[in-house]
Design a protein around this nucleic acid. Structure first.
Lengths: 333, 333
DNA sequence: ATGAAAGCGCTAACAC
DNA sequence: GTGTTAGCGCTTTCAT
């Protein structure tokens, strides 16, 4: 921290008013005569006075800071969400403290406690599922929390996301309609993979309902290389359609199959459950579930501002629409 | 901000010591008898006491918070840098306040002033070039600043990056060696495009030195679509080799040329000056300048911690090595 | 080794 | 409309 050269006290002295008046001017309180306001403003300008937000925070018990918990910076999925959050946050003059929980240097619980100690006014949570210790810490401090792009089983927190179940059913129905019967699911690692547990459940329900036999779930499919190496297994298992939870490994899979001379989508259909720039870069283009990531982030942040203002929420969970983006990795009959 | 249930004062009372002693225990000061320490620790545990970092910040004039200024969250290039920064920051117990300057809601200067008002202990700057007003604000508060992945003409700040000039010369030499003579350069928009001005200068110097005729600089090539649409222009201009400053538009260009039946790299060589996941997803794979982004971020953050501790720097600018990653978009003779 | 007390820079009653 | 005065929760001399 730097040496604080000029304080509210200096301004008060120079302007010949009390610090209370300066505070009023700084905070736009209307109970100040125009002349006084102008006089004070001039001094503020002249001395380059800038309020110390830390002192403001201590005195007012508001820091205009929100914590952001992401499972990983380098996943574009979260970057897109963050952008929506960031835009709304800056619109409402909030700063964002970024906390990544991908490196396990600190446990999620410690990271959250650190955020709470910094007296953030609220938290946006984008990871997969929250530990109980973390829940307790939030409860103890009653700091508002909103989940963005993920859901909360306990319905304890506000949340904004698409309807994952319907989306997944749409994908498998598409496969089914295209005549595919050996359907598979590839999921990534915990944490970064939203709603992983439920996704597997939905998948199995679909198989059962349609009498499609045993499940083929491929786990830990996270990187491009994971996707690339998945190709052989799929061929060995005679899979003819697969939903992959991220587009990066999906792109790896597409390239691997192309290298092997497999016809996509004729022999194997592929859909990615998330969509970033990568989906359009790869050839053939991926068919994806297009989540309105920016909007999810923006709506979540908007919801958080309401919570921080102690406003009532119309609904605790907001479900945003998704679109099935038809690319060239499905037949689209 | 939440209601602060338990303060250092409560702990002091419960433990039968003064708040000064509690403070010592919390901060690991050794001048406390073991018994006292244990007694206090027990109370802290029991009451779930957590120090209020805002109050600590005000009293100690250190917030253990650093500001991060990025030109855009959704550019993986900055995400990779941020990850290196984040890892080192959390190692040294610093929190990160993220400030994106891509939306022009707030001017860069205002964003920086906001960070300074929050009393950040230091700033990592990743944007292209800093406004003078921003420089003045930093100078007024003497907050340490380190540039990550970009350079500072004025040499006012610490910085960590690759040697852009040598890297660019390597690329154009590669083209030249492969027999290409109509060399072009595609650059993106200001801000997000590091070192844009110099890149053009280096390019022109190369042309001149090798008697390669007039320059072909294509500006505002930022998105995938920009790259895709660039193809026609390049063909019209008879360009036979081009360096593109980002891999996303480079991928668009590759796909466009492939769609037109142009042979890469025989008819046209392409090199991207940055490299992310996209470079390996596109077919043919991009030849890229591979910057050690994670390391640049990590080293920059490490440098900042030294500055924040008032340590002397061995060198103000650290230059990290890059590698020319040979893909399939150059002949590589 | 421990405690008392003075701030850190600001906000927010409460007076006038 | 403006000033006075307590704090906010903590760190940090300075005593002891």
């Amino acid at each position: 921290m730097q040496k604080q050269e000029v304080t509210i006290y200096d301004v008060a002295r120079e302007a010949g008013v009390s610090m209370a008046t300066v505070s009023r001017v700084v905070n736009g309180n209307t109970n100040v005569r125009k002349e006084t306001r102008d006089k004070v403003s001039a001094v503020i300008e002249r001395l380059h006075y800038q309020p110390n937000a830390v002192a403001q925070g201590l005195a007012s018990k508001k820091t205009t800071t929100v914590g952001l918990i992401v499972p990983g910076l380098t996943n574009l999925h979260f970057a897109e969400l963050s952008k929506g959050i960031d835009d709304i946050a800056s619109m409402y003059k909030y700063n964002i403290i970024l906390s990544s929980v991908e490196n396990n240097l600190l446990s999620e619980e410690k990271v959250i406690q650190g955020l709470l100690n910094k007296q953030v006014d609220g938290v946006i949570y984008m990871s997969n599922s929250m530990s109980n210790k973390a829940r307790e810490a939030f409860a103890r401090t009653n700091t508002p929390v909103v989940l963005a792009g993920t859901i909360d089983e306990s319905n304890e927190f506000g949340s904004v996301s698409i309807d994952f179940k319907t989306a997944e059913n749409d994908v498998f129905n598409l496969f089914y309609k295209d005549g595919k019967r050996k359907l598979a699911l590839a999921v990534g690692d915990e944490g970064a993979f939203i709603n992983k547990g439920n996704r597997i459940v939905y998948y199995k329900e679909f198989l059962e309902k349609n009498n499609l036999g045993a499940a083929n779930v491929y786990d830990h499919i996270t990187s491009y290389e994971d996707g690339y190496e998945l190709a052989d297994k799929l061929l060995a298992d005679n899979v003819d359609a697969i939903m992959v939870t991220r587009d990066l490994p999906a792109a790896g899979l597409v390239n691997a199959l192309t290298d092997k001379g497999i016809k996509i989508p004729e022999q194997l259909e592929i859909v990615s459950a998330t969509s970033t720039n990568i989906a359009k870069v790869v050839r053939p283009h991926l068919t994806t579930v297009q989540q309105p990531l920016y909007d999810i982030g923006a709506v979540a942040m908007r919801m958080l501002t309401k919570l921080m203002n102690k406003e009532e929420l119309d609904e605790k969970h907001i479900s945003l629409g998704y679109t099935l983006q038809y690319g060239q990795t499905t037949l689209n009959k």
